[in-house]
Design a protein around this nucleic acid. Sequence first.
DNA 1: CGTAAAGTCTTACGTTGTAAATTTATGGCG
DNA 2: CGCCATAAATTTACAACGTAAGACTTTACG
Lengths: 208, 208
Amino acid sequence: MPKRLTPADVSEFRNRLCDVAEHLFAEHGPDAVTIRQLAAELGVSAMTPYRYFADKDAILAAVRARAFDRHAQALENARATPATNATERSNRIGAAYVRFALENPEAYKLMFDVRQPGAEAYPDYARAAARSRATMTAHLEDLAAAGLFHGDTQLVGHIYWAALHGPIMLQLSGLLLPPFDAERLITGLTAAITKEHFGPRGPESGHD
Amino acid sequence: MPKRLTPADVSEFRNRLCDVAEHLFAEHGPDAVTIRQLAAELGVSAMTPYRYFADKDAILAAVRARAFDRHAQALENARATPATNATERSNRIGAAYVRFALENPEAYKLMFDVRQPGAEAYPDYARAAARSRATMTAHLEDLAAAGLFHGDTQLVGHIYWAALHGPIMLQLSGLLLPPFDAERLITGLTAAITKEHFGPRGPESGHD
DNA sequence: CGTAAAGTCTTACGTTGTAAATTTATGGCG
DNA sequence: CGCCATAAATTTACAACGTAAGACTTTACG
């Protein structure tokens, strides 16, 4: 049944496979999903995916990259949304970050999964991850441009990032017991960062 | 070769197996290690481990529990070490936390791995994890007892925990690019928490 | 219109986790 | 002291996995 594959055909198949893989990964975990399942779901034979991906590891990397891209898109959307001032926009980006993580916990787990050692070697993954990181520091540059922040935007951007990531990961690991959850810890942490870096009477800032 | 197994025999074999598993997991990742490898390393047949563990998942849970126990032990040692004052002891516990994570990155990854969904169902794992968490809040109770802190010890303990965990996990995910690393972000975050919760001129507090 | 090549499918292999059957050694009882 | 029920370990066996190799099938171009 082969007609010559255009690059568009290739990337369409890759996308369809990643869509299916994403759902199955989220439902059963990446280890429990087999190539044969993916192939069956797509109505092709077990070997067909290997025309489009080097191996299963590459499929995992591609799905992780796509998750990072959707995450980055959510952050960029928040940054592009009109806001009354730079501080509000900044908070909106933080809120978008947390909302994405809590509404797509399986995607977030995949993004920051620590069990694929060579992930940075996949260019798509590296680029998508860098794109998320970029917005996390860019919004501090916005604040600096508006004269609302004077300091190391890269450093404080990373600190802010870690202040969201830590609580989220603790919650997703199942190690936060009621009444504690990511939201609450993030509120506490971002309040501390805000006071530290925006003066003792700086703008009130939760993440939403 | 069977002599009746005493409970001591059983737990000795379990320990030996976990020792081996820990090393192999650290070296190759838990997915890449097979039961047959573990058995060979122990000089027994492939099925023998199944006398001591229900399945591979239970072995992973046991190794994770042991890692949490060693971590908890490191924290408890730091807490038990004499210090000139409660603040210093508190900082030492934070330092012990970070040191353990950075000196045993594979163990730390395993502890907070997000890919074993039913982990809390293993009592050993749940207990070991709770033991680590307990020390992370206990040292704030020490500060409160010394009159150096007035506030919600549980809440701020968790916030402090998240402030260490976030940077560490970002670094272990390989997503922190020079010049940023966990140490630096932790310094920034703990400084902010300290100022927030110990007044604008509270004690200077890095984590070491 | 034929043919080289591209795409797909089928077949096949080594490895995995583990169930079932088998062997082996021992501690308790006549 | 000798036998044997049984606990422990091993051997064997199987279905499922990732994927290499080869066979088939369709298309684009000379």
